[in-house]
Design a protein around this nucleic acid. Structure first.
Lengths: 195, 195
DNA sequence: GTCTATACGGGGATAGAC
DNA sequence: GTCTATCCCCGTATAGAC
């Protein structure tokens, strides 16, 4: 396994992504320079361009990776039971997943406008796919007569916004832990959609 | 009413604020230059500094103005009836106010991190004051036995996030108008808090 | 109040040596 | 794969004339 001098490709790539995520979340994409990212990793600027063609691609890969993680994690966590149990699973999953990745979530919501039109569209499709998972649960529950929902599309967007909003105020070590928060949200969601 | 050459102070100030609001909302605070704002208004850069000490103050005045408008408008719209009517009024007011000012709302949520620590704290207090208006309604309704709410603080934050979320997907000319949207949200909110 | 000109620093990205 | 050096452009803010 001979290695050329100074080569650390297996670990440098992830370290660049981690530094970019932290810095973008803290200061915003536009406010962070490639020089800052390089310094954070312990590199000179030029070396970054061995790992990303440009700054935009770095942002896109963070957002895309986050959305793919989200989809994969839900597919793994989703039960194949009835609508009510699936809705509860979705509520608890969404809150837990988002609270566990505050930086990725922050970037995913705040930096969309810094994507090129093409990249923006790609992330938009991934987000829509995820929302469809929730809407299908609501449609199934309504078809079975368990839910009373006038407009499943609207309710989907309302619930997603409510659940994701947790990330704007939640702090580790606060009054309520993630499970207690999820309990409260689940009870509100259940009442809001119940027949 | 003699006026010095090129003086347009009465209208230039508001035009600068309007241009800054539009550009900040579209491209983000950090991505917009003072040169762009000046060009949009039809001035040279230097002239902007007759109206604002720096770019930060320009952002802060937009955010502060938005929050003060919000508070003033709610005080004027709030009925002095029972909790249920006040909650309905709040839901409808919040949606209508936010949908009428998409740019100001966008900036108010996305550009908080570009404020200095001191200015951030000031906006945080204004936001908290507004949230208190809703929480008081929830507390009153619970005291009267009309609402079933486990945690009024949590419910306040959940409802605000849900209602504000409308601005992320609403488009003029879409399937539902502002009133139809408000009708749906009010019915969800009512079910979620009812005893 | 507005203009022109400028100071001064920093931005993204690339070239070529090692 | 990384470094140093550099290109070229743009950022905020100020000075001083009109």
């Amino acid at each position: 396994m001979a290695r050329t001098q100074g080569s650390h490709s297996e670990i440098t790539g992830p370290r660049i992504h981690a530094a970019a995520q932290r810095l973008f979340a803290r200061h915003g994409f536009a406010a962070v320079s490639m020089r800052q990212i390089a310094a954070d990793v312990g590199l000179q600027v030029g070396a970054l361009y061995n790992y990303t063609p440009d700054k935009q691609a770095l942002l896109f890969s963070l957002l895309e990776g986050h959305m793919l993680d989200l989809m994969t994690a839900w597919e793994a966590a989703a039960p194949s039971s009835g609508p009510l149990a699936r809705l509860e699973a979705f509520v608890r999953f969404h809150i837990a997943f988002h609270l566990a990745r505050p930086e990725a979530v922050f970037i995913a919501y705040m930096e969309l406008r810094n994507l090129t039109e093409e990249n923006f569209a790609k992330i938009g499709r991934l987000r829509h796919d995820y929302e469809q998972r929730l809407e299908q649960i609501l449609r199934d529950g309504r078809a079975e007569g368990r839910f009373d929902i006038a407009d499943t599309k609207l309710t989907t967007l309302a619930l997603i916004a409510m659940l994701t909003g947790v990330t704007t105020w939640y702090r580790d070590g606060g009054r309520l832990g993630p499970e207690a928060v999820a309990d409260h949200y689940w009870s509100m969601v259940l009442k809001a959609v119940s027949a």
